[in-house]
Write a protein that binds this DNA or RNA. Structure first.
Length: 111
DNA sequence: AATTTGACTTATG
DNA sequence: CCATAAGCCAAAT
């Protein structure tokens, strides 16, 4: 059953869910916005995840979130440096090698 | 209240 | 690689 903000999640609950997921991304791994949306039972809400992250607390490892193509956040060049420091490698086109560094959370089966 | 924007995604050309 | 389109939703105009 796919939850939507209108029915099951209030804005703050959605935000907390996103935070909880991002907080668990291990070092050296990345996740895409759509992946996170799916994980919290809100498929199709990738944009909302990005919006929530734009106001995320600095304690959150939000640099480990990239888009589905492995592209880093525009106007945040430091993100790439931070990821590389954790061992995440970038392809020649400047994208993260998602096939290798995408984190597949164990809780993904509860969906 | 209507429209545009944006840290999105998938599909097409 | 870039452009368009359609789907998505909160915030900012």
């Amino acid at each position: 059953m796919r939850l939507r903000i209108d029915n099951e999640y209030t804005a703050s609950q959605f935000r907390d869910a996103v935070y909880a997921v991002v907080a668990e991304i291990p070092r050296g791994r990345v996740m895409s916005y759509g992946q996170i949306a799916d994980l919290i039972d809100s498929p199709g809400h990738a944009r909302l995840v990005g919006h929530v992250l734009s106001g995320a607390p600095p304690t959150l490892p939000c640099h480990r979130v990239v888009n589905a193509e492995g592209r880093t956040v525009p106007s945040w060049p430091q993100q790439r440096i931070m990821l590389e420091k954790e061992g995440v490698m970038f392809k020649q086109n400047g994208h993260v090698d998602m096939n290798r560094f995408r984190w597949l959370p164990p809780s993904a089966e509860n969906i």
